[in-house]
């Protein structure tokens, strides 16, 4: 007799658990306002990334096309993947030959966005930008030169 009771008990509790589950999904079906999808390419205008989001490394330039990079290579050393390549040149400052930045090469394809280069920079010349649409059709386009053509170092940065 007990087994018969258990048999029907099992059916009852089984069906009850199924209906509980269906209530959850039914709730969401009847509440389409709770939909959380963001339609990405359409919401480009309003899409705002968090300020700390690490998208790519950029070298900051001011309105006079000047940057703060001294070419010290601290970021190049800090980078774990060889993403950053600093090419130097020698410039005359007060009659002395001084190391300066010639080309700031950034290989985006190798970057893991670890952010180690940012605190390594002694002059805060580079920051992480919020951009994230990096897809291109040719891999070579991912190798970027970060210093603008004709740019030079700001006064007073050593």
């Amino acid at each position: 007799m007990r087994s018969v009771i258990n048999y029907f008990k099992e059916i009852y509790f089984g069906l009850k658990s199924l209906i509980t589950g269906m209530r959850v999904t039914g709730h969401y079906f009847t509440h389409p306002k709770e939909i959380i999808t963001q339609q990405y390419p359409e919401n480009r205008e309003t899409l705002k990334m968090f300020e700390r989001f690490r998208g790519e490394v950029v070298l900051l330039h001011n309105e006079n096309n000047e940057h703060k990079c001294t070419g010290c290579s601290a970021c190049e050393v800090a980078c774990p993947n060889g993403t950053i390549e600093i090419i130097h040149k020698r410039v005359d400052v007060d009659g002395r030959k001084v190391k300066a930045l010639d080309t700031f090469v950034y290989h985006l394809q190798m970057c893991t966005m670890c952010g180690l280069c940012i605190p390594a920079c002694p002059t805060d010349a580079i920051v992480m930008a919020n951009t994230f649409e990096h897809a291109v059709f040719d891999r070579s386009k991912l190798t970027k030169v970060l210093n603008n053509p004709g740019s030079k170092i700001m006064d007073g940065i050593k």
Partner: peptide
């Protein structure tokens, strides 16, 4: 992941720890 992104700068591979502490303070 939104919390992580705001504080650590990435959603998955956050790399928020450095030997000795954190990379930056919490947001």
């Amino acid at each position: 992941t939104d919390i992580f992104e705001e504080t650590c700068g990435a959603r998955l591979t956050m790399n928020y720890n450095v030997p000795g502490g954190l990379m930056f303070d919490i947001h």
